[in-house]
């Protein structure tokens, strides 16, 4: 009888420890995700990218030059991805926004003021670039789990699994490997609801940001399920980019139209 009581007490204590440990792990996973979310806060930035695409067939379309302009805060994340060259990309831009409700929406603009809503989970410029990935919405998802340490190219990183039950999102699960010092995910794998890999992004080279002293990706590759390889290199940037009144005009117009419809 005595033995049973001792065993029961021990079991209770152990389950208690387990619960406390699980709670601590979840708390630290959330803290890592939160720190990643905050790391990209910016009143305005611009990055210019060289994008090289290799299709599954091995074909190489003309290299792209793109500008990514963004404004990221806790309440609202907005990006514009604008084509610089070649000619076919020049007059195209994609604006994407994630509001405080977590909803992501986008507008595609073409020459002569033609604007259409676009799927933020779709590819842009016929490359592996996806607007939603650039916003990394998974850092705000409620389920975050730490899964130990890994080393990528000699850099230690913390494995983190983020999950969502949002049925509107084609991405349900994300595996990241976070370099906590650099506040940078060195490897990101996105999965759908059936745990099928959608895309994997790997950082190849990092660079020190000019004034902040923190790190950012200089070279990265995106490999998607269709075996398209997209290599991206940041060749210029401005961490204090001045957002003008018309930078996000396409998104403002979309909001205005939505408000009109509601009325």
């Amino acid at each position: 009888m005595m033995l049973r009581i001792v065993a029961a007490v021990l079991l209770c204590l152990l389950s208690g420890i387990d619960t406390v440990y699980a709670a601590d792990a979840a708390a630290s996973a959330n803290a890592v995700a939160e720190s990643m979310r905050e790391a990209i806060f910016s009143e305005g930035f611009e990055a210019r990218l060289n994008v090289f695409v290799t299709r599954a067939s091995g074909a190489h379309p003309a290299p792209l030059k793109l500008a990514v302009i963004g404004q990221i805060s806790a309440d609202r994340q907005r990006l514009v991805i604008r084509g610089i060259s070649p000619e076919a990309a020049r007059n195209r831009s994609y604006a994407v926004e994630r509001g405080s409700d977590g909803r992501i929406r986008g507008v595609e603009s073409r020459a002569a003021g033609e604007q259409n809503e676009f799927d933020p989970y779709a590819r842009m410029f016929d490359s592996g670039l996806v607007a939603c990935d650039m916003l990394s919405p998974w850092w705000g998802w409620p389920k975050q789990f730490l899964e130990g340490m890994e080393q990528i190219d000699g850099r230690d990183c913390l494995k983190l699994r983020s999950m969502t039950d949002d049925e509107k999102s084609p991405i349900r699960e994300v595996e990241s490997c976070v370099d906590q010092q650099a506040k940078l995910s060195l490897k990101t794998r996105l999965f759908d609801s059936r745990h099928v890999l959608i895309r994997a992004t790997t950082v190849g080279k990092v660079m020190r940001k000019g004034d902040a002293g923190t790190m950012a990706a200089k070279k990265l590759t995106i490999r998607d399920a269709a075996k398209m390889l997209t290599e991206i290199e940041v060749y210029a940037g401005d961490e204090q980019y001045e957002i003008s009144a018309d930078t996000f005009a396409a998104l403002d117009k979309l909001t205005h139209n939505e408000q009109q419809k509601t009325k």
């Binding site: 000019g210 004034d211 002293g213 401005d238 961490e239 204090q240 001045e242």
Partner: peptide, 13 residues
């Protein structure tokens, strides 16, 4: 800029 160490210092207004 005080912290500029790159080939060309960071741009400023």
């Amino acid at each position: 800029k005080m912290t500029s160490e790159n080939t060309m210092p960071s741009p400023f207004k």
